[in-house]
């Protein structure tokens, strides 16, 4: 392979690098041919030493890409990171949202059941007591004393359920918050995955 041929094939594979960068690379490799030639080494041997121009171009492109990603927070790079982040967010949304929604629904029904039991239990207990003190005043209850105990039991069960589910909700909320924070950290790049690999 002559040096002209080598240079053409190399430059062809560098076309998506910036103009300045490309010119630097071409000048450098051309200087390599010149300096090698002045020491009596043939173009053929020099080209063989450099390896195929396509591979050389690939390594130059890789070097450039890693530099771009690590050093310059240019609009293009930031956009790429943002897009990656949105992609990850969408994935989370698709996979996690149904689970979160279902768990939230279960939790909400527990809270409502507990609340309703506590409220109704307490109210009917009061009604029962009232009907013991003032028989036939409002409504008649067949076994007023038994009714007081049953209603108080239902009310306290409902109260426990309510308190328990609210506590559970707090823990669940913390977990969701931590999960979201982790995602934000990953997206914003604070938590790098395989930082050493390019």
């Amino acid at each position: 392979m002559t040096r002209a041929e080598y240079m053409i094939r190399l430059a062809d594979k560098l076309h998506n690098l910036p103009e300045i960068r490309r010119r630097e690379i071409v000048e450098e490799i051309l200087a390599h041919f010149n300096d090698g030639g002045s020491e009596g080494i043939s173009d053929e041997a020099l080209a063989e030493g450099l390896g195929p121009p396509e591979i050389l171009a690939k390594e130059y492109r890789a070097a450039y890409a890693s530099e771009q990603a690590s050093v310059k927070p240019s609009i293009g790079n930031v956009m790429r990171v943002v897009w990656a982040g949105i992609g990850m967010g969408m994935l989370n949304l698709i996979f996690v949202l149904p689970i979160v929604a279902a768990l939230f629904a279960v939790w909400l029904s527990l809270v409502i059941t507990g609340g309703a039991m506590a409220l109704v239990g307490a109210l009917t207990a009061i009604l029962s007591i009232v009907s013991i003190i003032f028989p036939m005043a409002l409504i008649s209850i067949v076994y007023p004393i038994a009714s007081v105990f049953v209603c108080l039991m239902v009310a306290s069960l409902g109260g426990l359920l309510l308190i328990g589910s609210l506590r559970l909700g707090g823990a669940w909320g913390k977990f969701i918050a931590r999960y979201v924070c982790t995602n934000i950290e990953i997206i914003s790049g604070k938590r790098k995955q395989n930082a050493e690999e390019h």
Partner: peptide, 15 residues
């Protein structure tokens, strides 16, 4: 390969 060294030098200069 000499072709490995040139891109490396460019990277070192970038860094």
């Amino acid at each position: 390969s000499e072709g490995t060294v040139y891109p490396l030098m460019k990277r070192l200069r970038d860094e």
